[in-house]
Amino acid sequence: MRETTVNDAPPHDQAASAGSNARPVPFRGGGFAPQPRKGVGLVVFVALIALAEWGTRTGFITNLTLPRPSDVLITLGELWDSGLLMKHLQPSLTRLAVGAALGVAVGIWVGILIGLFSYVRAGLVPLVAALFPIPKIALLPLFVIWFGIDEGSKYALIAFGTFTPTVVATYGAVDNVDRGLIRMGQSFGLSWASIVRKIVLPGAMPGILSGLRVSLAIAIILLVAAEMLGAEYGIGAYILEAGSLYDLERLFAGVVILSLLGVIVSAVITRIEKRLLRWRG
């Protein structure tokens, strides 16, 4: 290769051609490593809301298509002042907490068992695969018969809906735990329980937590679904009522509450990740 380039250029103007050919090495690195950019998310939100506000004020967007954001805000304020917000939020949060806690706890347990025992894996992986794609809402009538029309069926729906994604995320995470570390634990004579508690569980924690993000988002979706099918109070009931009256301001107020709930849950998980996964740096 080098010989041909030398031969191409006549000896006497080699220096000159080297001069004219000199150019910096083009940069090809960088990217593929997202950095935290503070405030960008907020700017996107604000810009979209400002656009909607401007559109509805100028009449560019009709009142039938989209409520005016400031009106939604006013509705939210009224909701707060009348004390109705807490009346709707409190049962919703209880349902979310109880249902998700049940589903996640059982899901992590089953996921770990699937990850560790061949028979459990052989027996349950196909079952989980069969349960995963079932729209859990479709089973609500069944849950009502099994667990009663009251809170029981709502807890069960949310628990069941968070269970499957948690199981899948957990056993995948357990599969990814460094086997070398497990061998190390065995070579020091650690008990089975110690290996699970001190090696498998912390090693699987990153995967379990990212599964939790998905599970909890699903939990919020199912919460609303459950409440739409029969609840006096709850965000879902509130949205359903507003929808049936075509009261867009109240409908959107409910949607805003749900979005905020999602953002808060996600922020809480980020907090937990920061704490539990500090070792990853």
């Binding site: 070398g180 570390l181 061998r183 190390m184 070579s187 001190k198 090696i199 912390p202 090693g203 996964l277 070792w279 990853r280």
Partner: peptide, 11 residues
């Protein structure tokens, strides 16, 4: 054992 890849728990 002392392992080639150290086998330390990163957490």
């Amino acid at each position: 054992y002392v392992f080639q890849d150290f086998a330390l728990l990163p957490w």
